[in-house]
Design a protein around this nucleic acid. Structure first.
Lengths: 132, 132
DNA sequence: TAATATATATGACGCATGCATATAGCGAGG
DNA sequence: CCTCGCTATATGCATGCGTCATATATATTA
């Protein structure tokens, strides 16, 4: 399947909360379910609720390299199927721990974001009554 | 009040989901409540549930400059009180719209993070039963 | 055989962040 | 009186991530 990459030059200057390295836990949780390949992970991520669009391919491959170097995942070349050879990645035991660390991190992040929303809801109500 | 800045060289190489420009809506929502100053905003943010520690001072001032240049906030010098002169910032009408845009953005971000947590919860359970 | 999809990889660039540092006013204490 | 520390703002520099462009190779389809 051809993966649409919602990009294009001058995509937009509007605000968007990029989360640094959030691609990491996304890839890892997919690999925790089953071994996969870089390109396939890109597809899986695009279909998941963890992303709205397919991530940049270059970033995916670079991230996988970094994770492998850190011993979080392992790869073996798969020349069996049709098409060019591809790396099959699997999560290591250390990878499970790393993923668990990401969980608490994401929880903390949600707490902060929710902290903003709660605070904003109050001023929004104040703006409402102010207009009356 | 002296603001503790949880930093220090080699702070840590551990994972942490930094959210790009999330400082913006944090500052803006505080200014939506009441006008304030750069240094004070830093204190207020440190005490709020939107951050665990005081943000980098340099980043705060730079962000305020950028927001002012964008017409989202306005500033006037306040030489009245004790201590050095300080800029008092206020939210503009355009700032309210900008803040509203941030809200939907933060909601989308939470959705993605929650998407990860939901997915991870399932594999965590699988790991549990696997161990039995 | 030309074009497209699959599949991986790398170079270049911009930008936000983190840390260090500079400047200056003012209050407290020795 | 003079130094130290807090308040307050501002800027320089290095790093790292993400975005975009590009390169390469294989298999399928027109």
């Amino acid at each position: 399947m051809m993966v649409k990459q919602g990009k294009g030059p001058g995509h937009c200057r509007c605000i968007n909360t990029k989360m640094e390295r959030f691609l990491e836990p996304c890839l890892l949780v997919l690999l925790a379910e089953q071994p996969s390949y870089g390109y396939q992970l890109m597809e899986q991520l695009a279909e998941s609720s963890m992303a709205e669009e397919a991530p940049d391919a270059g970033l995916v491959y670079r991230t996988l390299r970094r994770l492998e170097e850190a011993g979080v995942i392992e790869s073996t070349w798969d020349t069996g199927g049709a098409g060019p050879a591809r790396r099959q990645y699997t999560l290591t035991d250390g990878g499970r721990d790393y993923l668990a660390a990401w969980e608490v991190n994401v929880q903390r992040t949600i707490a902060k974001l929710q902290g903003f929303l709660n605070r904003y809801d109050k001023v929004k109500q104040a703006f409402q009554t102010e207009r009356e």
